[in-house]
C-alpha cells in the first residue's frame, strides 16, 4: 500500500467515511470554496483619504519610510532625492515593467532584470497595497521578478494610491478579478526584513532589505 493510501485510509477510517457522507462532505467543501466567507475584520477607513492615511501610519509602524508624488512621472526624481539623502548610489535593479519611466533624467541608472547579490538598490511596483497592516502585495511575473524586492539592501516601491485596499481579503478579490489564478509567488511585504532571534531584540535587516521606502503615487 502506498503511504498516501495508508495515511488517507486511516483518516477515512477514523472519520467513518462512506460514500454517502463523502457526497455531503464534498458539497461542504465546494460550498466553503465558493462561499469564501470572510471572518471578522478590524475596522479600516474606506474613504480614499482615510485609507491612505491608515496605510501610511501602518507602514511607518512597520519601519517603512514614506514619500508622496503627484504622478508616476514624478517618481524617479523622488527616488533620486531619497537615494541621495541616504548616501546610496544612484544605481538600481528595477522591475522591467517600470523601466519605461525616465530614470535617466533623474540621474538614476536602472537595470531592468532580476536582482543579483551585488545590487544595492531594488525598485519595484506592487500589485496592490494593504492599509490594515501597511503591507505591499507583490505578484511574481516575468516583468516583476521577486528577487528585486529581496536581495538588495534597499527596496523602493512605487505604490499607486488607487491600489491601496483596506485588507488582505480585498487584495485576494482584486487578484481573482485581474489575474484569474494566483501567480507563482504572492509576496506580502511589510517593512524591512528583521529578526528577533538573539535575546528577542528586534534588528532591522536580516536576510532581506535593511530599508523599505514607499513612494505613494497620487495619480497615474
Amino acid at each position: 500500500m502506498s503511504s498516501r493510501e495508508d495515511i488517507l485510509g486511516r483518516v477515512r477510517a477514523r472519520l467513518g467515511r462512506n460514500t454517502e457522507n463523502a457526497a455531503t462532505a464534498r458539497k461542504d467543501i465546494e460550498a466553503a470554496i465558493d462561499g469564501r466567507v470572510q471572518g471578522p475584520r478590524p475596522a479600516v477607513p474606506t474613504d480614499t483619504a482615510g485609507l491612505v492615511a491608515w496605510f501610511e501610519e501602518k507602514s511607518a509602524a512597520q519601519s517603512s519610510s514614506l514619500d508622496r508624488v503627484a504622478t508616476l512621472a514624478d517618481a524617479p526624481a523622488a527616488v533620486a532625492r531619497y537615494l541621495a539623502g541616504m548616501n546610496l548610489p544612484l544605481r538600481a535593479v528595477i522591475w522591467p515593467s517600470l523601466a519605461g519611466l525616465d530614470w535617466r533624467a533623474a540621474g538614476i541608472e536602472v537595470a531592468p532584470r532580476g536582482a543579483v547579490d551585488s545590487d544595492l538598490v531594488g525598485i519595484t511596483g506592487c500589485f496592490c497595497a494593504i492599509a490594515e497592516t501597511g503591507t505591499l502585495m507583490a505578484c511574481s511575473a516575468p516583468d516583476h521578478p521577486a528577487t528585486v524586492s529581496l536581495l538588495p539592501e534597499t527596496h523602493i516601491a512605487l505604490v499607486p494610491m488607487s491600489r491601496i485596499v483596506p485588507g488582505m481579503e480585498d487584495a485576494w478579490n482584486l487578484a481573482r478579478a485581474e489575474l484569474g489564478s494566483l501567480p507563482r509567488a504572492v509576496n506580502f511585504i511589510s517593512g524591512p526584513s528583521r529578526t528577533g532571534d538573539i535575546e528577542q531584540t528586534i534588528v532591522l535587516g536580516a536576510h532581506g532589505p535593511y530599508r523599505v521606502h514607499l513612494v505613494i503615487v497620487e495619480r497615474e
Partner: peptide, 23 residues
Amino acid sequence: TGQSISNYVSVLTGVKTPEERDG
C-alpha cells in the same frame, strides 16, 4: 510575536513559468 503581520507572507503556487526570471 505580537506583530500585526509577519514581515513576509509568501503564498506560493506551482512552479515558475519559462518566461519568469526567478522561482
